[in-house]
């Protein structure tokens, strides 16, 4: 047995394992959602490790729910939600990294959003999306429509600006001398 199995490099191991599955899934997504799928970037043609599905903003919750529960996909596990600031128009891309506990493969869903536009929340699909979306809001200022509790999460509530935007300085200090207070109204929600 040759033990020199390399570390899966870009598109290497995963592509041979899941390439066919991904192709079939991309085709199924295009058929099901049609115009709601903007484009699909597949690994060997585009430098990425897993396929990237660009979804129109309005349809994202629907597509995510389908990816989560449909037997052809079964991406039941939300790995992560984050965003990137591309400094183009539209400015932001919200990134959903999904993982399947059935096939053990991954897929990435992206949504493009202009500055000031709201993206539908995924917290109805996965409650775990709640804090992840709060962090995206905190760091990039992207609002999520229908989010139950969209407050800042890492930065102080009184903070001005969104630190991970490309136009935010590396050393943008803001000093607060007194602590954040408790919000009793949050405790009444139950």
């Amino acid at each position: 047995m040759d033990i020199r199995t390399p570390i899966p490099t870009n598109g290497g191991d995963w592509l041979t394992k899941f390439g066919e599955t991904w192709k079939a899934q991309a085709e199924a997504l295009r058929q099901k959602f049609g115009g709601a799928i903007e484009e699909i970037r597949m690994p060997p043609d585009y430098p990425t490790d897993v396929p990237i599905v660009y979804v129109r903003k309005e349809a994202v919750a629907e597509v995510l729910a389908h990816l989560k529960s449909d037997p052809a996909f079964e991406y039941g596990f939300l790995s992560d939600i984050t965003a990137t600031d591309e400094m183009t128009d539209p400015r932001f891309e919200v990134v959903y990294n999904l993982f399947s506990h059935v096939r053990f493969n991954r897929i990435r869903v992206k949504v493009r959003a202009r500055d000031g536009e709201a993206v539908p929340t995924a917290s109805s699909v996965w409650p775990a999306a709640n804090w992840a979306e709060r962090e995206v809001f905190d760091m990039f200022g992207i609002r999520f429509e229908g989010h139950p509790d969209l407050r800042r999460i890492l930065m102080d509530e009184r903070w001005v600006g969104h630190p991970l935007r490309k136009d935010y300085p590396l050393k943008g200090y803001q000093i607060f001398t007194d602590a954040e207070v408790i919000h009793p109204e949050l405790l009444d929600k139950g």
């Binding site: 930065m155 102080d156 408790i182 139950g190």
Partner: peptide, 30 residues
Amino acid sequence: MAAKLNGETIESSYCAFGYTHRAKEKLGEN
């Protein structure tokens, strides 16, 4: 953690963090 207690029982609570935020993701870009 801010917790609303009924006697000793936690009726509802919410968590807060970020007190040791060092902006690692921002540093990763710089």
